[in-house]
Design a protein around this nucleic acid. Structure first.
Length: 888
RNA sequence: GGGAGCUUAGCUCAGCUGGUUCAGAGCAUCUGCCUUACAAGCAGAGGGUCACUGGUUCGAACCCAGUAGCUCCCA
């Protein structure tokens, strides 16, 4: 079988992914092996693959493939979450296109449409992950609204309610007027926005008569500054700081709200910042969290002038039905016309946006369901603080702790239909029963029913709201293994707790923390051991990649262009844990170049003819690479253990490109068209096979493709790289490794001489060595002769004059050339080196003659310094000889 | 306003408990090569007052304090 000149990723990717699936290599069932489990953070069903998913899932796939190759029973559970707000918004939009309004549909009808939508589009993102090579156990694919998972959500709700951890109450919530639902604090993104600060005059009651001239007008008006003039109709008071001398005369007064002339009091509270705006704050309890608290304190009425969709209602008295932002513009004009708009300033402030719909969040008072967090947060914090759960990188522990120590109750209700409907049933008089079914609720209701006639099902109405999507996903590591339905089943007992969770720091709180809480609450165990936090994928300018900015490449296009393997390498190359990744297509190119290198190295080896009569001239090279490979294996193992994936990849990259391709293959490569000996050939194939294994987690497709080449002999169907076992590290001959480093330096020096003197690589050069370091260069003669193209290598004991010379370690090398060397330049070079060494020796001596150093430094440090001194002295001696030789 | 973190080569980042020959890598750059595995390549080379200022120490990129700039989180 011959091999193509270039690797064609597309074909290989389709072929091998299919092959892996057919052979069930991704599947996992509990057995005697040690499990290694990852649950995929379920992407949104509405989502399409973006760069963040690419990074996240590449990392998971590398971890899972590696575990599989280490003999563990690797299980990667995929799935999606139902994303209630986002999905509902999509479905509403789709219906709108069909000319259907959600209002005209019953809940059941709407849900039918939603499920239809989910069946059609919900699997797209998972299919896209397959293109990346994700080796998930697809048979385990779960969706947060699957029957079993939904049942788990309802059971959990009931469980927590019974424990007193769920309650209903009026609270100021983050209202999304577009999604028409409350969202949690964590779903509000704050952004700095250019706004306007309106200065509005409120007339002071009983001061009107005095108006004459500017000075007096100061007492007849009170000016406030606000960014939200459309809410003045909801004002309940004006608040000033009691220490503010400017307003002493207003204490106890009343003012009139402009335009509607409603009378409100001036109240005093130190909460008000005197130097912000005018120092007078309009208090609007219904439309601002801080104002609400202030209102509670001062017993102010709550006047809510906004409808659920953000338009003004009858309580506003004016601008009825106008959207809040339209109303803002209009009221500014009205205020201006009324002569009460003093000025308008540009102002930057933080505004909350809904993460799901991007609508500006409206603080709104409403009846919502809450989950108490304090008791659950405590143990969840402990898992992380005592190290049972490791956050990688550790710097996130602080953030985690800060959040858990200041946790607020979780608003879990959403005014939507897509999701699990809250199992609360209202009785005619407003009491409610929490029960799994309406029948159960009815039974319970009749137990407390004081009426003579028993209640019927028709008397009960179920709560309209659904629970927050996170109230499903916090159960994910348990529910995907049916840990609620069947708490003692084989899967949950085997796979739980899972090993690693790979996710983004942005959801450390509202997902990771809550999973830990749920894990503790429902299993008494943490849900995972390690949390690997990836960074945000940003563009070259450091901007977060997003659809709206249009700065994100389509991952599938990238795969098309560079191959899945290339993109995987590209994602991993510059992504240390927890650090943002400045994505650059150049990295994917580097990835492609890398697997291309592997491909070509393979072509070289494959092209060799074997001659059984030949002796093996490459024993040293083989021994060296074997040691080097084992050394690299240890390093790679170590970096993986620390979850430094980009470093592990780089170490592998260098082992393959530098050590194997650039050095080893060059050392053993036969002269063109000449055959190679059997032993070297066999060994090299063995090395190559190990390299493929080591590379597989990073570049699974090309390694599988090469694995099946007949160079490796016949393979059974099940003999695949994906399930091959990683080699164990063998002996490392450190002496040999160190010697070869010297030999490589010698070769580099000679190549340098060629470069400088314009000598062709084809012209063989003689080399003499005066060695005192103990390296036996003759044992590396084959390598030196071949890679430096030497005509001879001789050991000498005397200095050679008139030859180009260089030092490696403390050994002196001479290349006699016909061409005479320039004594001036040579002298300069030696003098420079001498100056440097003299300085260096001086600093070493300074340490060694320093009593405190000798007293405090560890013995091995002192020893090292002594060796430095000896080496420097030896080198100086050689250089001095060279200098005096030139002088003479 | 509160909290956390960052600042090392042109770029992206390593640098473990302060101490191996003078701070490392990859990419990019420069020089020379179409040397029959690979120009998606080969062989070389250059490039850093470790943000700044002080302090601790025999010794500081690393520890401490302050300054400046940046990022994130919370309000």
């Amino acid at each position: 079988m011959s091999i193509a000149k270039t690797y064609l990723p597309k074909e290989a990717e389709e072929k091998w992914y299919k092959y892996w699936l057919e052979n069930g290599f991704f599947k996992s069932v509990p057995d005697d092996r040690e499990p290694y489990t990852i649950v995929m953070p379920p992407p949104n069903v509405t989502g399409v693959l973006h760069m963040g998913h690419m990074l996240n899932n590449t990392i998971q796939d590398v971890l899972i493939r590696r575990a599989r190759m280490k003999g563990k029973n690797a299980c990667w559970v995929p799935g999606t979450d139902h994303a209630s707000i986002a999905t509902e918004a999509k479905v509403v939009a789709m219906l709108k296109e069909k000319g259907i309004s959600k209002k005209d549909l019953s809940r059941a009808e709407f849900l039918d449409y939603a499920w239809e939508w989910k069946e059609k589009y919900g699997g797209i993102i998972l299919d896209q992950l397959k293109k990346l090579g994700a080796s998930c156990d697809w048979d385990r694919t779960r969706f947060t609204m699957d029957d079993d998972l939904s049942e788990a959500v309802i059971d959990t709700f009931i469980h927590l309610y019974k424990k007193g951890l769920i309650y209903r109450g009026i609270r100021m919530v983050n209202w999304d007027p577009q999604g028409k639902t409350a969202v949690s604090d964590e779903e509000v993104m704050r952004k700095e926005v250019n706004q306007k600060l309106y200065y509005i005059r409120y007339e002071v009651k009983g001061e009107r008569q005095k108006v004459k001239g500017d000075e007096e007008s100061l007492t007849s008006y009170l000016t406030i500054a606000t960014t939200r003039p459309e809410t003045i109709m909801a004002d309940a008071a004006i608040c000033v700081n009691p220490n503010d001398e400017r307003y002493l005369h207003l204490h106890g007064k009343q003012v009139y709200i402009p335009l509607i002339n409603r009378e409100i009091p001036v109240i005093l509270d130190e909460y008000v910042t005197m130097d912000f705006g005018t120092g007078a704050l309009k208090v609007t309890p219904a439309h601002d969290l801080n104002d609400y608290e202030l209102g509670q304190k001062h017993n102010l009425p709550v006047i809510d002038i906004l409808n659920d969709d953000g338009t003004l209602n009858a309580k506003a008295q004016i601008l009825l039905g106008e959207d809040r932002f339209a109303a803002r513009k209009k009221i500014a004009v009205m205020l201006e016309e009324a002569g009460v708009l003093e000025k308008v300033e540009e102002y930057k402030s933080q505004v909350g946006f809904s993460e799901r719909t991007n609508a500006v969040i409206e603080p709104k008072l409403s009846m919502q369901w809450f989950c108490k967090m304090e008791d659950m947060a405590k143990p969840a914090l402990d898992y992380v603080l005592n190290g049972e759960i490791k956050l990688i990188p550790e710097k996130f522990i602080n953030t985690y702790r800060h959040w858990m120590e200041n946790v607020k109750d979780w608003c879990i209700s959403r005014q939507l239909w897509w999701g699990q409907q809250i199992p609360a049933y209202y009785l005619p008089h407003g009491q409610y029963i929490i029960a799994k079914t309406i029948e159960e609720a009815l039974e319970l209701a009749n137990q407390i029913n004081t009426n003579n006639s028993p209640l019927t099902i028709n008397d009960l109405t179920q709560e309209e709201d659904v629970v927050d999507t996170w109230f499903s996903s916090w159960l994910w590591p348990i529910s995907v293994f049916d840990g609620f339905k069947d708490p003692n089943n084989a899967d949950i007992n085997y796979y739980y707790p899972t090993n690693d969770l790979v996710t983004a720091p942005e959801i450390l709180f509202f997902w990771v923390a809550r999973m830990i809480m749920a894990g503790h609450e429902f299993r008494g165990k943490m849900p995972f051991e390690n949390v690997y936090l990836t960074g945000i994928v940003r563009d070259k300018q450091g901007r977060k990649m997003s659809k709206s900015l249009g700065n994100s490449p389509d991952p599938l296009d990238l795969i098309d262009k560079y191959g899945a393997d290339g993109v995987r390498v590209g994602m991993l190359l510059s992504s240390p844990a927890g650090n943002d990744l400045m994505f650059d297509e150049g990295h994917c190119e580097q990835g492609r170049n890398f697997y291309n290198k592997v491909w070509n190295a393979f072509r070289l080896v494959k092209g060799w003819e074997v001659d059984d009569k030949l002796e093996n001239p490459n024993k040293v090279a083989i021994d060296w690479f074997e040691s080097r490979f084992n050394q690299a294996l240890t390093e790679i193992e170590d970096t993986f253990a620390q979850y430094r994936l980009s470093e592990a990849l780089m170490a592998t990259y260098k082992l393959v490109w530098d050590d194997f391709c650039a050095w080893y293959l060059e050392m053993i490569k036969p002269v063109y068209l000449q055959p190679i000996d059997r032993e070297t050939h066999t060994k090299t194939i063995e090395f190559f096979s190990n390299i493929l294994k080591l590379l597989h987690p990073f570049i699974p497709f090309i390694t599988e493709e090469l694995w099946h080449d007949d160079l490796f002999g016949d393979r059974k169907d099940s003999d695949c790289c994906i399930v091959a076992q990683l080699p164990n590290s063998g002996e490392i001959n450190t002496r040999l490794l160190a010697d070869v480093e010297n030999v490589k330096q010698v070769i580099t020096q000679i190549r340098n001489i060629r470069n400088n003197k314009q000598i062709s690589p084809k012209e063989a050069l003689p080399l003499s060595v005066k060695a005192i370091s103990g390296v036996s260069y003759l044992s590396y003669k084959e390598i030196l002769v071949k890679l430096a193209n030497l005509s001879e290598l001789v050991l000498v004991t005397d200095k050679m004059s008139g030859a180009i010379n260089f030092l490696v370690s403390t050994d002196e090398f001479y290349v006699p050339l016909k061409e005479t060397i320039d004594p001036v330049a040579e002298k300069e070079r030696l003098q420079k080196e001498k100056d440097y060494l003299t300085g260096f020796l001086k600093s070493v001596n300074a340490k060694l003659t320093n009593e405190k150093f000798m007293a405090n430094a560890k013995p091995e440090i002192i020893e090292a310094e002594q060796k430095k001194r000896a080496d420097a002295e030896a080198k100086l001696k050689i250089i001095d000889e060279g200098l005096s030789g030139l002088a003479g």
